[in-house]
Amino acid sequence: MTTIDDLFKTAKSAMAKCHAPYSRFPVGAAILADDGSVHSGCNIEVVSFPEGWCAETSAIAHMVMAGGSRRIVEIAVVAEKLVACSPCGGCRQRLAEFSGPDTRVHLCDAATGVVETVTMGELLPHSFDTASLDGAENEASA
């Protein structure tokens, strides 16, 4: 069984592999899928901002490419330069699409581990979802 500490260590290991020559802001993420698999990612920058990838986005891509579950039950995010690194707005939306409002998000400090745990619902209380698309489609056809 994967523990919160396991997720933190996996995220920290991913952070060490980042490519952040411009911001010098390494970030790592680890996600636990509902089938028990763990997928990690790091931020990857390119000179054409904002065309790089955030750590959370990389972790989601690894989960999708693994071909198993696509449902996140827990997430850990760690940054080298912050005490508690929260996902950016774009990543909050991406994570919300692969999780639920009760999914736990562990905000970590690189030296000590989990600093705070919040839910996706707290991070993104009014996420854009497929119900939003269905509503827009119904309004357009009326």
Rank of each mutant, 00 (worst) to 15 (best):
V115M: 09
H62R: 04
C91W: 00
G121H: 05
I31Q: 02
F8Q: 14
C85V: 11
E51T: 09
A20N: 15
P87W: 04
E74W: 09
G52R: 08
T117Y: 06
L7M: 10
F8M: 13
T119C: 02
C91Y: 01
H106R: 06
E80L: 15
V105T: 00
H19K: 14
V114T: 11
D102V: 00
G52A: 10
P26L: 12
S99Y: 01
E74P: 09
I31W: 03
G28F: 13
Y22L: 10
S23H: 09
S86V: 11
G90P: 01
G90Q: 03
A33V: 08
Y22E: 02
V27F: 08
A16S: 15
G28M: 12
T57C: 04
V38R: 03
C42R: 15
D35N: 11
K12W: 07
T103I: 02
G100C: 05
S58F: 03
V27Q: 07
T119V: 05
L82M: 15
R24I: 12
M120G: 07
R92C: 11
P50M: 06
Q93K: 03
A33F: 03
V78W: 07
A30L: 06
S23C: 11
F98D: 00
I31V: 15
A61W: 05
S99R: 02
H106N: 12
E80M: 15
A84F: 12
E97V: 01
F49S: 11
M15T: 08
I60F: 02
E116I: 03
A29K: 02
A111Y: 05
C42Q: 15
I75S: 07
T117C: 09
E56V: 14
S86M: 10
C42P: 10
D34L: 03
G36V: 04
K9R: 15
Q93P: 00
C85M: 15
V46Q: 05
A110L: 07
I44C: 15
A55Q: 06
A14R: 14
R94P: 00
S58C: 13
M15S: 06
L7T: 08
A55Y: 05
T57Y: 00
T10E: 15
F8A: 14
R24C: 13
G36R: 01
V77H: 10
T10W: 08
A96L: 00
A61Q: 08
